[in-house]
Write a protein that binds this DNA or RNA. Sequence first.
DNA 1: GGCATGTTGTGAAAAAATTCACAGATACCA
DNA 2: TGGTATCTGTGAATTTTTTCACAACATGCC
Lengths: 241, 241
Amino acid sequence: MTETRVPTPTLERLATYLRVLLDAREAGVQTLSSRDIERLSGISAAQFRKDLSYFGEFGKPGVGYSTQQLIECIERILRLDREQPMLLVGAGNLGAALVGYPNFRAHRFRIAAVFDNNFVKIGRPFGDLIIEDIARLKEVNAQIGAQIAIIAVPANAAQEVAEQLVDAGIRAILNFAPTSLKVPPWVYVRNVSFLQELAVLSYHLAQEPKHSRDGWTGELPSEPTRPASLAARVKETSDAI
Amino acid sequence: MTETRVPTPTLERLATYLRVLLDAREAGVQTLSSRDIERLSGISAAQFRKDLSYFGEFGKPGVGYSTQQLIECIERILRLDREQPMLLVGAGNLGAALVGYPNFRAHRFRIAAVFDNNFVKIGRPFGDLIIEDIARLKEVNAQIGAQIAIIAVPANAAQEVAEQLVDAGIRAILNFAPTSLKVPPWVYVRNVSFLQELAVLSYHLAQEPKHSRDGWTGELPSEPTRPASLAARVKETSDAI
DNA sequence: GGCATGTTGTGAAAAAATTCACAGATACCA
DNA sequence: TGGTATCTGTGAATTTTTTCACAACATGCC
């Protein structure tokens, strides 16, 4: 493992591995092999091992990976081992969903401030926060020191917001607006596009199904070696996301 | 262009091209070259041409692409040329954001029914709709005939929901729950994970900035040949997503 | 110890995706 | 008409990512 750049797909999968590992720890599983990960995540065992190999050696041949240890390693790699304050711009429905998203805290992400440009909303409570005037973005972030921001405003406002964020010292942006942001090279942007996702789904509907229904039993190709407790199903009314 | 399977990244980019084309049409632009697309989308001209080549020949050498014509072609490819009813499961904050998402309609996606398992919510209005009992999923979809569904429930409920959706005849699922769904091979699933996106951002914060700030002027490397109208900025209070 | 079983880490091979580079087509102008 | 400039479509080259396959290591059992 020398000084290679890590592929983005690898980073994306790392978050999946972490989720699986946390579930396993919850279930009291001390050790997992790469094949266990494959079964639990749908990502191939070889892929998993290769992904980890970019960062070092974490497993023990013949045994597997210590759940606890690997969790800690991945959290360190992804910088999930420290509190990460974030700025949210756009106090609409999506913003509300993000502010209320319960899983953020488990990964030490915290929305530290919400901004909007609608003077009717400014000053109103929003989750635990008060909606701030977008004009005060730089000022507020001077206190917070967030490096990550989430853009949840309409496309026509997104570029301007991005520029304000960059000015406020933001180095990474999660952009939900359907537009291509132009930012300086030291700012990293990831776009989330619901329409893009739906479009890809839609395309696949058009294709002839390559897989027939024959032979599908509804049973998962599971290995009976592990107790079912790992995949225990919580069966109760549970709040939607 | 023979019978090749289309790469998924190509499909994802198609939605981006479409967005750019719609903006251009709105601005009255009749024709676009692949380099225009590159400037507007950030995706390279060669990539754009290669992507289209999977589906046929749409441009005119020396001229470019007819905005209107290419829009129609991409909409046909992505099956965006017909009404597409969808089922939404999970009437939480995220569900609310999706039901209220304005851009769906422009692409002929329509959330036709919302389901939840929380008896307190069932029967209550949700956007234009009434929240239905998840138990009636199959029954309701017998009327609607949706092929696409969106899962916006917590991870521990997602697998069960997926199975009910499959039973109700759904063929494509957009999954917001942080879990790996097991579905029959004729069902196509795409996962959206906010945590995954944030984790990748977080990782990049850790990396040494490869790009120094030197030479960044804030100016985009734009070509002055086209009128600014195309990138006209709407400057007003606009509702967040 | 010796052997059977199971697992990792990783070069090498394969597959997939992107970029290059250019022939050929179109438009425009003098 | 010929010359110049522009732009597409695509085979080939390149780069990136995934998969394969196996040596080396660990464990448990007799």
